[in-house]
Amino acid sequence: MAENPIRFGIIGCAEIARKVARAITLAPNSTLSAIGSRSIDKARRFAAQNGFPDSVKIYGSYDAVLDDPSVDAVYVPLPTSLHVRWAVSAAERKKHVLLEKPTALNVADLDLILDACRSSGVQFMDGTMWMHHPRTQMMKEALSDTTRFGQLRSIHSTSTYAAAKEFLENDIRVKPDMDALGALGDAGWYCIRAILWATDYQLPKIVAAFPAVDFNQRGVILSCGSSLRWEDNKVATFHCSFLAHESMDLNLYGNVGSLRLWDFIIPYEETSAFFSLTSGADFSELHLGWTNKPEEVRVASPLPQEALMVQEFARLVMSIRDFRCGPDPEWPQISRRTQLVLDAVKKSIELGFKPVEL
Rank of each mutant, 00 (worst) to 15 (best):
C117V: 07
C117L: 04
R118I: 07
R118F: 09
V122S: 10
M125H: 05
M125C: 13
D126G: 07
G127A: 15
T128M: 12
T128V: 14
T128K: 08
W130I: 00
M131C: 11
R135K: 15
T136M: 12
M138W: 08
M139F: 04
M139I: 06
E141P: 01
E141T: 14
L143Y: 03
S144T: 05
S144G: 09
D145R: 03
D145A: 03
T146R: 14
T146W: 05
R148Y: 03
G150P: 06
G150W: 06
L152Y: 00
S154G: 08
S154H: 04
I155K: 01
I155L: 11
I155F: 05
I155P: 01
S157V: 11
S157G: 11
T158G: 03
S159V: 02
T160M: 12
A164F: 07
F167V: 12
N170V: 10
D171H: 15
D171F: 06
D171V: 03
I172Y: 04
R173W: 11
K175L: 14
P176R: 15
D179M: 12
G182V: 02
A183C: 11
A183V: 07
A183G: 08
L184E: 00
L184H: 03
L184C: 07
A187Y: 13
G188W: 00
W189Y: 14
W189K: 11
W189F: 09
C191T: 09
R193M: 13
A194I: 01
A194V: 02
I195M: 05
L196Q: 05
L196S: 02
L196R: 00
W197T: 08
W197M: 13
W197Q: 06
A198Y: 00
A198C: 08
D200I: 10
D200E: 15
Y201L: 06
L203I: 10
L203D: 10
L203H: 04
L203F: 07
P204T: 01
K205A: 13
A208V: 11
A208K: 14
A209Y: 04
A209K: 01
F210Y: 12
P211Q: 11
P211I: 10
V213C: 09
D214F: 09
D214A: 14
N216M: 06
R218W: 12
R218D: 15
G219S: 09
V220G: 00
V220N: 02
L222H: 06
S223H: 14
C224P: 03
G225E: 01
S227N: 10
R229Q: 14
R229L: 05
R229N: 07
R229W: 02
R229P: 00
E231Q: 14
D232E: 10
K234D: 00
A236D: 02
F238K: 05
C240P: 04
F242E: 02
L243N: 09
A244Y: 09
A244D: 14
H245W: 10
H245T: 11
S247Q: 12
S247D: 09
D249M: 12
N251E: 10
